[in-house]
Design a protein around this nucleic acid. Structure first.
Lengths: 194, 194
DNA sequence: ATAGTTTCTTGTCATAGGGCAAGAATTTTA
DNA sequence: TAAAATTCTTGCCCTATGACAAGAAACTAT
């Protein structure tokens, strides 16, 4: 078993004792995904959650017209979890697909629950991650109302430049709530400005 | 102290023993808000969260141009909480204001923590509420991309008719991500159809 | 009741972004 | 490396929604 650097990084601010950290890390399993492989499909239940070690993943929902809307991207050290499905054992509404080959570390629901109810700092950390996801989502949905597409794009470039360079424009476009055509024009306009 | 019906209703699906329920309920305090009163202002820290017994409250963010964007409405039996501020003790980004006179039940952070770490079902319930808020927010932000304003409005009317009847149109408009002018026209169009 | 305030509607005009389609560029696969 | 598939750009035209402003309607408070 390879040294799980990434998990030490992930948990470093969680106030865990060395033993607690070891206990937690030992419950994770390394998994790999091939480019285009699905980690989870709509209708399935999320039995695991993951921390990404390398590669890019996206989640997307499919609307009534069959268009897919990217809801999130996942990169190094980020948590990949379908909160409602994992915690309510309800079928997820989204697809999670690897955009590149990936390495990740996985934890199952039962192991999670055991750690959650026995280690106080683990549950504080978990709660904090969920709150963080909520906060990010809210910020994004306010920006969707207050900021024009161009600003939302510039913001994303600033926050996650590697992502913009590595992911097809159409996925970024649907994430920003515009068509790929529009995003292409926005890019052109930005290029002209420099 | 009045009989806290509403809290029994709030916790009825949380799998609590009678004693646990009593312990929890006894930690809450009843509070009232006058119409237009602020429960919390941007920049402050949320030391409490609430369950609404009666009345309507809204939360809103103010964008860089000074426009306010309604982010949520709170009505009977709903939880009113600023998750990031309450759990991270960070200044909130939003205002929470009573739209009508209100009665609510309040719990402080320390009491919350004590219950959270000592009663397993309470923490499962709390987690479930947070996951629920996350899920609702995600549904809303996907709809913002996939559905036209008219459909989002019809959806809101279906889900919360009392709200639409009791709250000024401009707040509903900003909640839906349109101007009040547009929403007025959308309403007109719907009226014409009947 | 009356004045003042807030809310809602409506008109005119402007604009961001969508729909569709063609072609160019790039990547993948055989 | 050639063919196929995918991704990205661009043109043309259209639509939903915004900005601004005026008036009507509905509350609110004295």
């Amino acid at each position: 078993m390879a040294e799980p650097h990434i998990l030490h990084k992930v948990f470093k601010n969680d106030n865990l004792s060395a033993e607690e950290l070891e206990t937690i890390v030992s419950r994770f399993t390394q998994v790999t995904f091939q480019k285009n492989e699905y980690i989870l499909r709509a209708g399935e239940i999320a039995h695991y959650y993951y921390f990404v070690e390398s590669g890019f993943i996206r989640s997307y929902a499919v609307d009534t017209d069959g268009n897919d809307i990217t809801t999130n991207f996942y990169a190094k050290a980020q948590i990949l979890i379908d909160w409602p499905s994992f915690f309510r054992k309800a079928p997820t509404k989204e697809f999670y697909q690897a955009l590149t080959n990936c390495v990740a570390w996985r934890l199952g629901f039962d192991e999670f629950q055991q750690l959650f109810h026995s280690i106080e700092s683990f549950r504080e950390g978990g709660r904090s991650r969920l709150v963080g996801s909520y906060f990010t989502l809210k910020r994004r949905s306010i920006a969707m109302i207050t900021d024009p597409a161009k600003e939302r794009y510039l913001q994303l470039v600033k926050e996650a430049p590697e992502l913009v360079q590595n992911v097809p424009l159409k996925h970024i476009a649907s994430y920003l709530g515009v068509t790929d055509t529009s995003l292409s024009r926005i890019r052109k306009e930005i290029a002209k400005e420099q």
